[in-house]
Amino acid sequence: MTTMSPSSARIATTERRAVSVSKSGMPFLLQVSMLTIRNLKTTFRTPAAVIPGLLISGFFLLVYNDSLGGAAGFIPGLGANSYLGFILPLSIISAALSGASLAGESVVRDIENGYWDKLSLTPVSRGAMVLSAMIAGAVGLLLQTTIVMTIGVLMGLESVTGIVGILAVLGYSLLVGVAFSGLTVGVGLMTGSGAATQGAAFLFFPLSFLTATFVPVNLLTGWVRTAAEYNPVTYILEAMRAVLNSGWDTEIMLRGLSSCLAMALVLYAFAFFGLRARLKRR
């Protein structure tokens, strides 16, 4: 990402104008934070766009828990008590997938109203434009996650690692949000279509089933197990579950973290590729 620092003029523009325009432009991280804040502000000026996501997250948790919680007693090593802690991370992933389209849709909105072009005409780093949309989307998802966690706690969730564990789960969910937002931002940039963006989020929905969805991975068999073992979501789920149900385990935590980061990086690259494709085509 360091190569995407503002590509501003370092050449002979010595006599600058009356307005003090710094030659190096704005630092990359400042650009990202400024654009992220702008993105969040405008997103929340249309509350109707955010509310469905919030409702659906709570829905996933209630339905998964109430329809499957009774059977959880049959899972070896899982007391019925901790099924809530087992299923809650899945609700978070489901919410991240269904809510990730928000980030792509905000990009599509900017493309449609022309503001994307307006930004592109400034010396702002293209990477900052892409990343800020992803982070803004992830922050929106973090809000959903927080609500899911709150509902979970109200339903009797007990985290064995206490509040720190809950914060760790929120941290994972932020990274997952950044990753999935990268997918929708990329599709949004490539297609400029809101419908395609929503469709893309849906296309990745199976990821939350080809994993240790309802039972731990060691209870899975056949091709589903193989798929789950290659699915990065599995390791993220395991990390979140471990924190809530069995305690700190550095190896599991790191595996989850690196899965998150790998996904975020790959999908950031995908989003950036979407930007290039857009530039080439227009």
């Binding site: 503002p6 590509s7 325009v21 022309g114 503001y115 072009d117």
Partner: peptide
Amino acid sequence: GQVREIAGVALQEIGL
């Protein structure tokens, strides 16, 4: 990058 620094642009599609 240098072009963007010295060019001001108001497009036909107003970008607001």
